[in-house]
């Protein structure tokens, strides 16, 4: 059985994956047994659903500015269409011969192919959504990188104006993503990183204020204050980088690495 790494994909595909597995087992146990029923109507329903998915998929490709999605999604759509054609062939063949063994094979290959290709398509879409979150994470990293050149309170105010909305978006989106993951360990890492960031952010701002204050008062202890500020910025950078790493993991990656 395939492993789906988000709850949304799992809820869509897990029931059909179980049905396809059962069909394969039944086919192996009862090959050339009873005649197949007329499957024209249910195959037509699948074909119509595939036509709609291909239409929606093409619209998604055309409207997206994600080059990886534009590159990966068409292949998945072609595979869905090809599997649908196998089902149509199976249906025609079974109408002529309800015992046809090649038709049964096409039925299994077609339904399994639809499952795999739809899974690939949803994964492609999901990865594109993840890349949007990662883009936000990179914005936060860019702001953190300038923390050490902030020298005045006015600059600090502007720094906060830039960083705060970005950090809020990352927090909101990563929190939602964490709830979506089926992989508990990955979800827990994201929660832990978010908690760290929420703790570190106000301390970083405080350390920047202290640095600015010390510099404005003549500079004694400025070096230590700068070190402390840089350390906190680095800690936050590490947490964001860990979020980026975990966001890109799927359960499949983990199994492969194991």
């Amino acid at each position: 059985m395939p492993v789906f790494h988000t709850k949304t994909i799992e809820s869509i595909l897990d029931p059909v994956a179980q049905q396809v597995s059962k069909l394969v087992i039944l086919h192996e146990e009862a090959e050339d047994g009873l005649p197949m029923p007329d499957l024209q109507q249910p195959v037509r329903s699948v074909s119509n659903a595939v036509l709609n998915l291909v239409k929606v998929g093409r619209e998604t490709i055309n409207s997206s500015d994600d080059q990886i999605l534009k590159q990966d999604m068409p292949g998945a759509l072609v595979r869905v269409e090809r599997s649908s054609k196998l089902l149509e062939e199976a249906s025609r063949m079974l109408k002529d011969d309800p015992y046809s063994s090649p038709a049964r094979k096409r039925l299994i290959d077609g339904s399994g192919g639809i499952l795999q290709a739809t899974s690939a398509l949803l994964l492609c879409f999901d990865e594109s959504e993840v890349r949007k979150i990662i883009r936000e994470c990179h914005r936060v990293l860019d702001y953190l990188a300038v923390a050490e050149v902030i020298e005045t309170l006015d600059e600090l105010v502007q720094f906060l104006r830039d960083l705060s909305p970005c950090l809020s978006r990352v927090s909101r989106e990563v929190s939602a993503r964490e709830k979506e993951l089926t992989h508990q360990v990955h979800a827990e890492i994201l929660v832990r990183c978010l908690e760290q960031i929420k703790t570190l952010a106000p301390i970083l701002i405080c350390s920047m204020k202290i640095y600015i204050h010390i510099v404005s008062q003549g500079g004694k202890g400025a070096e230590e204050a700068a070190e402390n500020r840089n350390y906190l910025a680095m800690r936050m950078t590490d947490e964001i980088n860990e979020i980026i790493r975990v966001l890109q993991l799927t359960s499949y990656d983990e199994e492969t690495s194991e």
Binding site: V16, P42, E59
Partner: peptide, 29 residues
């Protein structure tokens, strides 16, 4: 998202098809 809705429709239709195809075989087992 429309793509999720479209995938749900495919999953439901494929599930119905596979159930129909399985029914006859199940009788035999």
């Amino acid at each position: 998202e429309m793509i999720l809705e479209a995938a749900k429709s495919i999953a439901a239709a494929t599930s119905a098809l596979v159930k129909a195809a399985s029914a006859a075989q199940r009788e035999l087992i």
